[in-house]
């Protein structure tokens, strides 16, 4: 069965995520209104400007439907702005507090090789663009990777969130890990 994975498409690099998902055998669906969330097997919240996406979620009435989707156990991958949107101060489905633009302005943006717990095959090339880091981590949150002592990849239940852009580096392992979770979840619910 080909899993249908939503990509929040209010603003940001949603097309890039959709392309990666398609290359990996999933069927991406751009999500702009609540109806687009029906029957999804997984959801990606992409990078972009978190302020723009927050306003868009409000305008479209997407906050409650997105919370229900996470509560139902559907796997979610958030990248950069996606990490921010999932945190306590936004959708409140990931028990962390993200700090926006934590590494500084664009001239401080960088790429680096990053070891991620549970991801085999060595370090992943991680692209950080005006990236956040995780400032506070709740008890049930697993930290998978850090930069300078600041968590930049975390997991809590079905939610995987990273401060960088796995969609930009050509290394597909993080999306593969996410799709593995999507498949396993589909198997459990019988869908």
């Amino acid at each position: 069965m080909v899993p249908v994975v939503g990509v929040l498409a209010l603003q940001g690099d949603f097309e890039t995520h959709a392309r990666v998902l398609r290359e990996l055998g999933a069927e991406p669906r751009l999500v702009r209104v609540p109806g687009d969330l029906d029957g999804l097997d997984g959801l990606v919240i992409p990078g972009g400007e978190s302020t723009v996406m927050t306003l868009g979620i409000e305008r479209e009435g997407l906050a409650e439907p997105l919370r229900s989707l996470v509560a139902s156990g559907t796997p979610v991958l958030g990248t950069c702005a996606g990490l921010i949107l999932l945190d306590r101060e936004h959708l409140g489905v990931l028990d962390v507090v993200a700090r926006r633009n934590a590494f500084g302005r664009q001239v401080r943006s960088f790429e680096a090789d990053l070891l991620i717990a549970g991801l085999s095959g060595g370090p992943l090339r991680a692209v950080f663009i005006r990236a956040p880091w995780v400032e506070e981590v709740g008890a049930d949150v697993e930290v998978l990777a850090s930069v300078d002592g600041h968590p930049v990849a975390v997991r809590q239940g079905p939610v995987l969130a990273v401060a960088f852009h796995p969609e930009l580096s050509g290394d597909r392992r993080l999306h593969e890990a996410f799709l593995t979770a999507v498949h396993e979840n589909g198997g459990r619910s019988g869908g």
Partner: peptide
């Protein structure tokens, strides 16, 4: 990294 910021501005 330079072109990546523009990627994040897309749809905006």
């Amino acid at each position: 990294v330079k072109a990546g910021l523009a990627e994040m501005l897309k749809g905006g």
